[in-house]
Amino acid sequence: MSNQVIPANQLRAPEEKTGAMGTAFFKLEDAVRWARTKSMWPLLFGLACCAIEMMATFASHYDLARFGMEVYRASPRQADLMMVAGRVSRKMAPVVRQLYDQMPEPKWVIAMGDCASCGGVYNNYAILQGVDEIIPVDVYISGCPPRPEALMYGILQLHEKIKHGEPRGQIRIENWGLRG
């Protein structure tokens, strides 16, 4: 048992919980990536309607703690995931950009909802047509607002992406709860 080699991505409970996991050999890089997905601290940051669904996601019913994602940090210095939940107005844009810059590397961004992804139903003087105009986005989630399930799926996709060490690129989650 103790010499058994377990690939990093196959570590499973109950060994994880008891700590009786034996010895595992894997690339340090993989270990770090795996650890990152297990200790993500999102920034407690909501902009508009989508933030209410984000709150619902980490509240009692959907319970984001199941994915180890419930430790929301109010300070950008302690966070490594920014969920842009809502529409970004031109007045708010510099603030969002500043928050992003204040987050330590490595950091990821989820654009939650149509507004953050592409401006949504507003195409006018006040709203930024997608938060990717000011910060790089890793995962886009469609929906107005996306259902909590869609947000969770998006987060899991981000975990996958980090585990596989994919270069920064975009994942689009479509056809999920298009009707909010």
Partner: peptide, 24 residues
């Protein structure tokens, strides 16, 4: 910081479509 221009946008929508903006 969340000014969305909803009132202006409504002037460019028919009455039925404007309802969807009121939700938000």
């Amino acid at each position: 910081y969340l000014h969305t221009g909803i009132e202006k946008n409504m002037e460019y929508k028919t009455y039925t479509k404007a309802i969807t903006l009121t939700d938000r």
